[in-house]
Design a protein around this nucleic acid. Structure first.
Lengths: 350, 350
DNA sequence: TATTTTTACGCAAACGTTCCCGATAACGAT
DNA sequence: ATCGTTATCGGGAACGTTTGCGTAAAAATA
């Protein structure tokens, strides 16, 4: 099956005009008489002419399209961020192409390659949890392809970056648990080399420090697949529960990790917050429906997407090479619910 | 900023060959000597040559890309379906472009127009809840653009369609409530003209009929925005609770509708299943975490995406016009949890 | 009236690729 | 020596569009 759209040439033939005249008439060029313009415009309207964007891309060497790379769209943070991206992109005349790395480095490389050759005008990326080597981005970036990182950023690449204030978010979450009387707070996070993991871990540590609680690395576990693999999460939890000095709190550092932890805790038959109090870095809007309702650190995902897109488009449309780059950190929001509630028992003990 | 990739012409110039020879060498044509081939291949590898897909699209009048239109990706059913679509598309050498209608008819029209002019080779669509007029699809389809509908289909357009067995899924869900002793079962669903709404309503009615329960249209409410607007859902619930003959069960007919209902029920301070038992058509994998855990009808979303994509690609690659179309209905899965549990009180009353 | 300016349009190149059609050379056959 | 084959390669058109340049006629100026 094929699909034959009408071209500028068809219009020219039908009206006895050259393609250049038609093109200029359509663009409203001053060197076309108003009668001819009217003629062309009306005919184009009548036969429902649409300029072929592929031909335009070839000619102008740009696409008016942005590539998005995230680990997965079935993730509240990313789907909200994508909505933010779209909201700006469409208003500025850009189309978006969404790709999922599924947390695979290899797949990320393939996608980057594909998007670049497909001539997207720029890239919005949050790297996969497996990514430690950024040369696939670097190569393109140095060749002049604009890239803006959001959420999980590549610190070694000098460009715009937009993130949540992960340090503060983690600090707040941890401190909240501490204020509610929990003292042995475990932390389950994503791959350690991820920027977000480091930032959140640092916030967690700082909160412990400020509250005179010793940092114990046995309480910290990394899930190298970002919570995509259930067993990895369950293993981490089992180790935590095997500790002689029992953990009484848990701070989970990602959307997927948080929900997977909740599932694992249920399977392991742990009561929240009695056995362990939980607060998670997640953008799910279903937290209040959980049993118990889930305390969360919420990221301004939509706004992060918006800001990143504005920066990217400004880079794309800049006449001269961009030399000043911004790193924006947007504030998170702490939403307290029952999963981190202070328990009477714990309180009386202290 | 601009991005200058290497072309076939650059290779030709560097090697003292014509573009045609280079092109043929790259394609492995028989009329190029093996030495020349080796030379070209090695040089191309060295400078990391990538064919420009835009030029190819222009020439071959196809893109190797598929357009996807769904209401929103922040929806478990659709994100899973998209994963299914991708799994097939990438293996067959197609790229996907995802667009969200956000349940808006107007936006859907814009998207269709954009994707078509963008020369996607075919469309995979689940229509928006506002869509009653299908001419925007029909026009393109009649011009030869292959379209496959999934989930929410346009019955008046004769093409491949892939859905879950909505009738049976709804029947099973309703009957499950009945078997558990509930007799006044409300049904909250999406816009009435949506194919899925009709199919699910019919399954619901049939289950009532088979179990000698009278159908009461006061128990059925339509949410014209598919659960995207909270108030619409809360209103429906309030009306249900105001009925003189109280409802004791609720069957919700969509992913978003189900979760929004759960939120509204919580806000209205209704106990599940004591005040009302709930079962919902949803693909969330978080149902077991809810309070109470949520009984669901699960659709084989991933498989629906896969099957739809296979059908679409077969249409695209078919030499002759396709005249035989399939309508596939895949089986749903009933997952029983606590939200629909028979309650002692209800049982003793009967 | 002769010259310049303006108006309004066409020609052709370019974007990167493929592919039809020739073209050239070597080579064996006649 | 001439011709048909075969193997290898280049020229150029085409895909749909924009745009610099050229140019005819019309209008304005001298």
């Amino acid at each position: 099956m094929k699909f034959e759209p009408v071209t500028i040439k068809d219009i020219g033939k039908a009206l006895g005009l050259s393609t250049s005249t038609v093109s200029r008439a359509l663009r409203g060029s001053y060197e076309i008489s108003s009668e001819t313009k009217k003629l062309v415009l009306e005919y184009a309207e009548k036969i429902n002419y649409r300029p072929n964007p592929i031909a335009l891309s070839l000619k102008e060497r740009r696409n008016h399209s942005l590539g998005i790379i995230v680990c997965e769209i079935a993730n509240n943070f990313f789907s909200q961020a994508i909505n933010g991206i779209e909201s700006i992109a469409y208003n500025r005349g850009y189309h978006v192409i969404i790709s999922q790395s599924h947390e695979s480095f290899e797949r990320e490389c393939v996608i980057v390659d594909h998007l670049a050759s497909r001539s997207v005008d720029g890239l919005l990326v949050s790297v996969s949890s497996e990514t430690q080597d950024y040369t696939h981005f670097k190569q393109l970036y140095e060749k002049g392809l604009p890239i803006v990182f959001f959420d999980r950023v590549a610190n070694e690449i000098i460009t715009h970056k937009v993130i949540a204030d992960n340090f503060k978010g983690a600090y707040d979450a941890t401190e909240h648990l501490i204020k509610n009387g929990f003292k042995r707070i475990a932390h389950i996070t994503s791959a350690p080399y991820l920027s977000i993991s480091e930032e959140r871990l640092n916030g967690y540590k700082e909160a412990l420090l400020k509250n005179n609680i010793e940092y114990d690395e046995k309480l910290v576990h990394y899930c190298y697949h970002g919570g995509m693999i259930y067993d990895e999460v369950e293993e981490a939890l089992k180790k935590i529960f095997k500790l002689k000095q029992k953990a009484d709190g848990l701070f989970t550092a990602g959307d997927r990790i948080t929900t997977t932890c909740m599932q694992a805790l249920q399977k392991l038959d742990k009561k929240i917050p009695d056995d362990i109090a939980v607060i998670g870095f997640t953008n799910t809007n279903l937290g209040e429906l959980f049993n118990p309702s889930l305390s969360v650190v919420r990221q301004p995902a939509f706004e992060i997407g918006q800001v990143a897109t504005e920066l990217l488009i400004s880079m794309i449309e800049s006449k001269r090479p961009v030399t000043e780059f911004e790193s924006k950190a947007l504030q998170t929001e702490l939403i307290i619910r029952d999963s981190s509630a202070a328990i009477a028992k714990a309180k009386s003990n202290s």
